[in-house]
Design a binder for these strands. Structure first.
Lengths: 297, 297
DNA sequence: AGTCATCTATCAGAAAATCAGATGGTATCT
DNA sequence: AGATACCATCTGATTTTCTGATAGATGACT
């Protein structure tokens, strides 16, 4: 004989319920069936799993250890069945999500943890594209769902939904001229501004442009590195400043003018024509239901 | 019916051998048995694993994915059986090894990789004790095997075996007075020496003492940090210097006297009276068979 | 101490699953 | 076209597993 899943099941049920009889009741089998199955398992493994001194069987040290192993084997069977079920339910086996770094990581991590619990069998690929355009990735089928900042013109094939607005902070290095005292709007124009090198052209690209001289940098993270060196000032979302390794060298100077949180709209995008499975739909709904840390949408 | 290990085995064998017939030959069963078992598995999972268009069955995408899962389940069964076998063979379930940092990590890692392959079911705990004495850990039963540098007096209950000698290098900071030019033995005595704070007293503790003024530090790694600051000079094994994060700031000055590699003997120790299982014996033999990077023992 | 409920191991027969071998049909190669 | 190797399916035989019964043992309770 060879070790059988039924044997392992009888073993685990016995360990969990505390007696062969109870295990029989749980598994809807006769007590004798459980008893012999566990006994056979012990013969196959060549080791005693339960000590049968008293009225109830009690795990031996070996039984204790092997119980954990048995649970693993049974879990893997359940997992296999789950994978098969997700195939028949036409759940995606793989889902690619492209998220702009503007989206705060903390709720993102919570969301994906939740996703993993709901769809344990779906392989998730997360992209944080730098220079590529999120909407282009979605358009080309390289990503199933995208989260990006607003682009005025989106192709008609792309569906979208506004998630909310992320407020930006004005930040500069602590040795930068702007770091001392409150800032005038006109003053801003005289210093170099660092902006993310947005990919597609359009009016949105220019909306935040304030200074005469602008450098284009591929990521907010890199921008902070440059800001720290005193190369210029920038508009960067809160959460990126918070989590920056160089945040001690950064200054958020007070402003002498209003309406100065420069909100940026975050959009969720997908391809209208590509059919989306249950996992993609679930993720879209959850994205839409979440509120961004800033103003609600 | 529920998914059975036999079914999975038939499935995997079919996928590996390319046909039901071949799988039957491999598993020493009739072709019909394999065929029906795979068919039953497909019914249970509710999905087609093989496409049966041509002469031979060929995996569907779902089959491809589930094949990996099936292999995992079968592997876990083998693992369980292996754990049980190691119980009956009275293999230790846990082995604690205390290694002095003098022992080079590279061969150590290779050795333990090998160990993991031979004894996959043994939990290994590795200690790199700082201030505690390795022989004391072994004596107290907190470690099964120890590798330490030679202590003249070892308790009688401790068995030991000399593994080899580790040569030490004289090292100092690049701004230290000794860093310029070849070094005289008398010169050494005038500068502060940093030594590892060895735990037990004994003549071995004093053997390497050269300077008048000595600081005792708990680890060679920390010693290098201090040496880098120019606090003193030290004798440190090669591999620790190599792997130090501060090695650019260190200098190994030339010496104007001979016999200056200060070899330190490494011993393997164990408790004679405590019975050792197969894993401990294997590890002892392999330790003994290895040559230290320096002179052979 | 005696009673009772509940547990375990084991047995025999019934029920179920699995297997081998035979058969017919089909794809592939020569 | 013929030969070969393969697959699906059927049937009866074999093996395994299950149930239900029985006897002995343990622990709780009076």
């Amino acid at each position: 004989m060879t070790v059988t899943l039924d044997q392992l099941q009888a073993f685990v049920a016995t360990a969990e319920s505390g007696s062969f009889s109870a295990a029989g009741r749980v598994l809807r089998k006769a007590q004798s069936a459980i008893s012999t199955q566990v006994s056979n398992l012990e013969d196959d493994l060549g080791i005693e799993l339960f000590s049968r001194q008293g009225r109830n069987p009690v795990l031996t040290p070996a039984g204790e250890r092997l119980l954990a192993e048995a649970r693993v084997v049974l879990d893997r069977r359940e997992h296999l069945i789950g994978v098969a079920a997700s195939f028949t339910a036409h759940v995606e086996h793989r889902l690619v999500v492209a998220v702009d770094e503007l989206y705060p990581e903390k709720p993102l991590a919570a969301l994906f943890a939740d996703f993993a619990a709901h769809f344990p069998h779906v392989e998730l690929e997360l992209l944080f594209p730098m220079m590529e355009d999120v909407s282009r990735l979605v358009l080309d089928g390289k990503a199933d769902i995208g989260v990006m900042w607003r682009q005025e013109i989106l192709p008609a094939e792309i569906g979208f939904h506004t998630l909310g607005w992320v407020p930006l902070q004005l930040v500069c290095g602590k040795n930068h001229p702007l770091a001392n005292g409150a800032i005038d709007f006109e003053e801003l124009k005289r210093h170099r501004q660092l902006m993310v090198a947005v990919r597609s052209e359009g009016p949105e690209k220019q909306r935040l442009r304030t200074a005469a001289e602008v450098w284009w940098v591929e990521s907010h993270w890199v921008i902070l590195q440059l800001v720290r060196q005193g190369i210029g000032w920038a508009l960067v979302p809160d959460h990126i400043i918070e989590n920056s390794p160089v945040r001690e060298d950064l200054v958020i100077p007070p402003l002498r003018f209003d309406g100065a949180d420069w909100p940026v709209a975050l959009e969720m995008v997908w391809h209208k024509q590509r059919p989306s499975g249950p996992a993609a739909r679930w993720l879209r709904e959850r994205f839409a239901a979440m509120r961004i840390s800033g103003l609600p949408g």
